[in-house]
Write a protein that binds this DNA or RNA. Structure first.
Lengths: 218, 218, 218, 218
DNA sequence: TATGAATGAGTCTTCATTCAT
DNA sequence: GATGAATGAAGACTCATTCAT
């Protein structure tokens, strides 16, 4: 139950606009410098508002972080389903979801790093909400894994463990981007890792299907 | 070239003792609360010394973090080789190294999380030193991957990518330990992941060898 | 080029008011206790503002000292010309300038002592700016000396040396005021010193002119 | 009555040696950086002793300053009489005393500046002792002025005022040395100022005597 | 509603002083 | 007597938060 952040302003449209303004600025700054090294003044400046205004829409600095983290995770939850819409076949949908996930992360490296670094900076209760949101994103991937198993394309492995590996692979891209920078694109990175990952997972039917997809896309 | 931290005390033995005292306390606190949320006073208190003493052995607070991060990474670099000493066969040594790595991480979850969260909190030059140290640890694993390839046990895959996956799997244990807590032990976690990971890597000879090792240890 | 002190507030009027408030307090305290023995908290208290406010208008404590010293010297530079306005005759103007100078110093003994004691407490570059300002004040006196020489009232002596003696005499009043306290007023002190000083300087015409002025004022 | 500084060591010879060691270092450092900007550690280092030792011979940091100031003033009191020993004639002795005074100051510019800047840094009671010592030094000069008056070489002027001017002239050399640096030597500076100063003071007999002395030394 | 000046609690850091060896 | 490591009180400075306009 995403606990409500108190605002001193009533107009819901205005609240939404102002908050997204401030959160947008904060994601950039928190991601780049970290939560503590970023001042509310800086956030306000980048958002193009006054310091005082921030406190009309957020209770305190932690509220900003909390909503920023939620915003980041919500973006994942929203974009992955969109990427698989209208795609035929469970394996193809699985591949599309993973690629979408990695692409979202690549487009929001600051935000992803932020989620990693600063989740601990919010209080216990809120941290649990964040973790909950994270699990929901994972569930989006996990559903595709389960579908592939049901369709007899994947062996009967633990879907959670597989999902977990995928998530880690994607996050690793953000966390250690400096490591691969210039050597690999996201798509290449995902493809190679997917190849390794799928190898033991695919059933005979899955293997044929996968081959068809990969060669078709090549 | 690990840049030297200035100490106002000369006695090398004392410096080593005091620093490790303070660093020990700081790893716990930085790991649990983060760098900024931890005060020097708290570090001193937990280390059982006065605030002033800290500044006899460290130039400033960032020095503590820098040395703490180095200490964490040095621990990895030292314990992995020790775990593979006297072990026969490249595949066995590879498995031992991975398990050792995961075990060290499991024993120092705070420290690992610290390395993830706070590397950005040190200045650019020092951050590079830290990253360098990290690469050196990775190289320890990578060497075993190469040995397995040379021995014809692994297919001719990119050793760096494999190493990278192993590192991420191990780190994931620390970063998302709360996810698995109570459901899996480290050893189980590593074994399962290793099984998935090795599947596409092993040559026919490697597969037989691996089977022998796994059934022997069971 | 009087290097600008950064303020976090833009409103120029407010900046001027707040700064003069703080500088006024600082001149008193720095003059009485010295720069290091005065805390920023004390300055804020005496200025009737919060500690934090001080840092909205000054970069650091040294900035306060620097502006305080400049304020003191600017006061001299401004009041001496005002004291000689509308006065006839170079000798009369010279005497008026010296008296004005001494009176300003007498009215700001704390500030003068401050300038003596604490000029060394600001960094090299700023110290040079202060010295420059000091020279400008001296130049105001020196101009009158030159005028008297040109008018044939003073012998052709080194104007700089004479100015220097006057400055020293005036400063001596501030530095060693305790020595004369109760025995001499500033005016008496200046008159006596001027009598001694002028004796060898005056030409025959100057001597007659001086006599006329002194007896007129008596 | 020069209040005694407590020492934890009894051996008088040792106390004298250690104290002069520390005071020597402190005069240099206090003179260059000021009292507050100099740490006890630095003094000890320059004196070639340990920090702890300082507190065996001085009660606290202010004691060091107090003794340092006394040492400076004692040096004046001791060297001026020595410079006039065996010199014939009151005017010659007067001139010798003034030159000696200026030379001592020139040789100890740091110390003189120290006396000016930091006298306020000692407590009230001790400040009075310092001022007393200063007056005693002045008295040495004043005696020569009185002798010259008695001998009919000086007009019957206020000896205190004259002495005061001399003292200021000499101190000005130290305080504003940067102003004259490279343009005048001490001796030139004193001679010129003395010429101006003596002009109104000398009686007819004094004038002849002075001429004789100046031309003889030329 | 929006502003941004003002506040003051809390942090890092220094350094005089002590004291066990 | 001498040392220098250890202490902790105190100061400069920052920044989240408030509030009058």
């Amino acid at each position: 139950m995403p606990e409500r952040i108190k605002s001193k302003v009533d107009d819901a449209v205005l609240v939404a606009r102002r908050r997204s303004q401030v959160i947008g600025a904060s994601i950039q700054l928190f991601g780049k410098r970290g939560y503590y090294a970023t001042t509310v003044r800086e956030i306000a400046e980048r958002a193009g508002v006054s310091t005082g205004l921030v406190y009309q829409y957020f209770g305190d600095k932690e509220d900003i972080l909390f909503l920023a983290l939620q915003t980041v995770l919500d973006a994942y939850k929203e974009r992955i389903p969109r990427a698989t819409e209208g795609i035929e076949g469970p394996l193809m949908r699985f591949r599309a979801a993973v690629h979408a996930y990695a692409r979202v992360i690549d487009a929001n490296i600051d935000a992803t790093v932020l989620a990693y670094r600063e989740t601990k900076s919010v209080g216990r209760a809120r941290r649990d909400i964040i973790k909950q949101k994270e699990s929901e994103t994972n569930a989006l991937i996990e559903a595709h894994v389960r579908d592939c198993i049901k369709a007899g394309l994947f062996e009967k492995v633990d879907p959670e463990l597989i999902t977990y590996q995928i998530v880690m692979i994607a996050h690793a891209w953000a966390l250690k981007a400096w490591h691969w920078a210039g050597r690999l694109t996201v798509e290449q990175y995902v493809d190679r890792n997917l190849a390794l990952l799928l190898h033991p997972l695919l059933t005979e039917r899955g293997r044929r299907e996968n081959l068809r997809l990969v060669s078709a896309s090549a």
